[in-house]
């Protein structure tokens, strides 16, 4: 948890992508609300949630976007990538296909997202070690050859989820701090807006002060 959502130095939009059912929505709920739902539903359309963290003395508000994994919805959710400065590319360590498709997702990012987007490969469901179908070595080698950072997580037992998000957010901060604009720039969702690092805060954030953790 962080301070009031209104008080932050940077706002980063990060998208979750990857095949359907790899656990994107649960990574989101684990990071932003510390929740994991066994009766989660497939995501239809687009959703997002926010959480603020501290990084090198700055408050970074992360706006994490989540969408349906199925290819058919790709056409209509390209607006999804607009303004994103980071992407968590998630696969399921127990499903070889979801790892094989990582290549396709990288192409998707290349086609629709900003060229400087920071990408992290995330092997989720690490609690299911006995069903593991993608070795850590293979994934790690793939990440290295594609210039991605890599981590294995479990949204269910909450291992490495915090680390994954923190690591990509601080990487964005380090890389982007040079060109990052201060809070208060125009929205990146206007039809012809250019890519900016900082995007507008959502309106309906709670106004109450929350305790700082981390």
């Amino acid at each position: 948890m962080a301070r009031s959502d209104d008080e932050y130095d940077y706002l980063f939009k990060v998208v979750l992508i990857g095949d359907a059912g790899v656990g994107k929505s649960n990574l989101l709920s684990r990071f932003t609300r510390n929740e994991f739902s066994l009766e989660s539903k497939s995501t239809i359309g687009v959703e997002f949630a926010t959480r603020s963290i501290q990084c090198e003395g700055k408050i970074i508000k992360a706006q994490i976007w989540d969408t349906a994994g199925q290819e058919r919805y790709r056409a209509i959710t390209s607006a999804y990538y607009r303004g994103a400065v980071g992407a968590l590319l998630v696969y399921d360590i127990t499903k070889k296909d979801s790892f094989d498709n990582v290549q396709r997702w990288l192409k998707e990012l290349k086609d629709h997202a900003d060229a400087n987007i920071v990408i992290m490969l995330v092997g989720n469901k690490s609690d299911l070690q006995h069903l593991k179908a993608v070795t850590t070595d293979d994934a790690s080698a793939f990440a290295e050859s594609n210039g991605l950072s890599f981590i294995e997580t479990s949204a269910l037992d909450n291992s490495n989820v915090e680390e994954a998000f923190r690591s990509i957010l601080s990487e964005i901060y380090r890389l982007g701090s040079k060109k990052a604009l201060e809070k208060g720039s125009t929205s990146n969702f206007a039809p012809n807006a250019t890519q900016t690092i900082v995007i507008n805060p959502p309106a309906d954030e709670g106004k109450t002060e929350k305790a700082k953790c981390c």
Binding site: E47, F48, T186, S187, F189, N200, A203
Partner: peptide
């Protein structure tokens, strides 16, 4: 109409809510 014009994220959140 009280939401910020052009702020897709605000509108999305409102409608999802």
């Amino acid at each position: 109409l009280r939401l910020e014009k052009g702020a897709f994220d605000q509108l999305l959140r409102y409608i999802n809510d």
